[in-house]
Design a protein around this nucleic acid. Structure first.
Length: 576
RNA sequence: GCGCCUGUAGCUCAGUGGAUAGAGCACCGGACUUCUAAUCCGACGGUCGCAGGUUCGAAUCCUGCCAGGCGCGCCA
């Protein structure tokens, strides 16, 4: 067990049992990182009243029964009753030594859960925008992290591939020709295609009529219409996959589970909800009304599962996703990485599913994605007010990174520089999305996300590049840097202690579904490494054993940073 | 009107009910014959929106208020 907090928690619990009786042995020992020691146990203050003793008395009793001599160098009662715990240097060194031969870097394998993750969800024949970027990047990081923790992750890309706009889109595709340049726009600039179709729909009455008729044909399964519809989706998939490739996202065609895949479930869902008395007709629409959901003037908010024209909306489809994921995918947790504004809608969907008895023991979780804002504090758009094209935005990030690389590394060949610029530019954008709490809005700023200082992708990538440079210079293989690890210098100690935090952090990210905690950890680790790098020569260490130890610390930092970035979906280039 | 979210340093953001609330940027002062100075060190900077409450202890939990954002019946 490498996690100091966990080790100390168990020891303190034993002491609690010994000091106050077995009924206290499972009390939370409240171990926290401390500014006065490595950790502090605050349990004495929490239990003092219950024990009818002063907090310092309680702390003294705990310390008296506390057996940590192998782990801690110093145990001290401080202030009103804090127990300050300082780890032994050798204990820290031994734990880092363990990490060197542990491919999981101290991360436990958890009991396997089935976890469908719904993320990305772009629309066919529509440009992805920065909102899609964020759900894609965050969802992908969660998928990678949960998989690493041992879970069975089922990626679900709930693309918008059904609905009334398809009449207009299909009709437009038919007019321009499936092999035309206009149709090819779907692969590169889908909004241009969509807007052309829209313009015809709004301006041409005959076209609009044909489009409406086409929707009916689509819904009734007309073969030729379905073929065209399928074409649209194929062309759009090319666009999606271009974006996913560029972004280094793990989504593939196998993960596509668009709205249309649930079509057959929608009617039966409405029937079942009606039979169960959950759904009633109101103003011609089939609705579910739930207690506690009221809107304007106290009127109950309906979840409309069948529109008055007989069509189905997204509420029904979302209900279908729950049913499918519970019944077919055997989900334990169902993760929806979706915009924060849909919170009310999703709560109603979850509650409806629960009342219908579809949820079982599965837990649906909404990972709320906050809006991405421009520097003006409003939803990010171009100066003309149009949504920003995602590919153009990614290109700009790479271009900016490219300019910096050209300036700072002129000696590298063009191909190498381009590869670095690509990793840094894309990594910067992704990391910016990941490093901020997913449910808050954040201000998009190229200059800040590409900065080499601060909690940025490039800063972490640079730390990795410097480490690799050390091994390159020394003609050494990180895998051969096996120590033994010695901890003497303060910077060595601080770095070693940080290294022990990786596993616990990954576990926390899996529990809370908050990737920004991993970012904060990695940033902290990189800072500790940089301080170490400044203070402790590695290759030029004056003694062989010190050199071997520092190489081992450096190698452990390398694998931790690379693994952490990998879980986030951020590449770490060989050099920068 | 109801509901959800947010309010922390000039700016962008962290912050597990624990001691003196942190980081990056910006500003100021230092550090390159050195494993990548694109990196580091230091200083400056706070009535944690306001007011109550719970608690031994509150940025954190509860209530009210203020400000901003978003949502609230046939788009998704």
């Amino acid at each position: 067990m490498a996690d100091p907090q966990e080790v100390l928690a168990r020891r303190v619990q034993s002491a609690l049992g010994a000091a106050f009786g077995s009924e206290y042995a499972d009390a939370d020992p409240v171990i926290r990182p401390s500014q006065f020691a490595d950790f502090q146990a605050n349990v004495a203050l929490a239990l003092a009243k219950q024990l009818r003793r002063s907090p310092r008395d309680a702390a003294a009793a705990i310390v008296e029964h506390l057996d940590v001599s192998d782990v801690c160098r110093e145990v001290e009662i401080s202030g009103p009753g804090f127990i300050n715990l300082t780890l032994r240097d050798e204990w820290i060194a031994d734990r880092v030594q363990d990490l060197l031969s542990d491919e999981r870097l101290g991360t436990p394998v958890q009991e396997r859960q089935n976890i469908p993750i719904d993320y990305s969800a772009p629309n066919v024949a529509k440009e992805m925008h920065v909102g899609h970027l964020r759900t894609t990047v965050v969802g992908d990081a969660l998928a990678r992290t949960l998989e690493f923790l041992g879970h069975h992750v089922i990626r679900q890309n709930h693309i918008g591939d059904w609905g009334t706009p398809f009449g207009m889109l299909i009709e437009h595709l038919l007019e321009v020709g499936e092999d035309s340049a206009d149709a090819a726009l779907l692969k590169s600039d889908p909004n241009a295609f969509y807007q052309a179709a829209r313009a015809k729909f709004d301006g041409d009455e005959d076209f609009a009529t044909r489009a409406r008729r086409r929707v009916v044909a689509l819904q009734s399964g007309d073969a030729e219409t379905l073929r065209l519809w399928h074409d649209l989706i194929e062309l759009s998939k090319i666009y999606f996959n271009r974006i996913y490739d560029r972004l280094d996202v793990t989504l593939t065609d196998d993960d596509l589970a668009g709205e249309s895949t649930y079509n057959d479930m929608l009617g039966p869902i409405c029937d079942e909800l009606s039979e169960k008395g959950l759904a009633v007709v109101s103003d011609g629409a089939l609705c579910v009304f739930l207690d506690g959901f009221t809107g304007r003037e106290g009127k109950p908010v309906p979840l409309i599962i069948r529109k008055s024209d007989g069509g189905y909306g997204y509420a029904t489809t979302d209900l279908a996703t729950i049913k499918y994921r519970v019944e077919q995918l055997k989900a334990d947790r169902i993760v929806y990485v979706i915009g924060a504004p849909q919170s009310l809608h999703l709560r109603m969907v979850y509650e409806t599913a629960r009342q219908a008895g579809w949820l079982g023991d599965a837990e649906p979780i909404h990972v709320q994605i906050g809006n991405v804002l421009g520097s003006d504090g409003k939803i990010l758009r171009t100066r003309s007010g149009a949504p920003i094209r995602l590919m153009a935005l990614l290109d700009e990030a790479v271009e900016r990174a490219s300019a910096v690389v050209a300036e700072t590394r002129p000696e590298l060949d063009e191909q190498t520089r381009a590869a670095i610029a690509r990793d840094v530019g894309i990594g910067a954008v992704k990391y910016a999305d990941l490093s901020i709490a997913h449910d808050t809005e954040y201000v998009f700023d190229f200059d800040r996300m590409l900065a080499l200082n601060g909690n940025t992708g490039p800063y972490l990538q640079y730390a990795v590049a410097r480490i690799r440079s050390i091994f390159r210079r020394g003609g050494l293989d990180p895998a051969q840097a096996t120590g033994p690890v010695l901890v003497t210098e303060p910077a060595e100690r601080a770095l070693a202690l940080r290294l022990l935090g990786f596993g616990p952090t990954v576990v926390q990210v899996g529990d809370t579904l908050e990737p920004h905690r991993l970012c904060a950890y990695l940033f902290d680790l990189a800072q500790a490494f940089t301080a170490f790098y400044e203070a402790c020569p590695v290759l030029k260490a004056e003694r062989d054993d010190v050199r071997a130890s520092r190489l081992a610390l450096t190698a452990a930092t390398l694998s931790t940073l690379v693994k952490g970035l990998d879980l986030l979906g951020v590449r770490a280039p060989e050099q920068m």
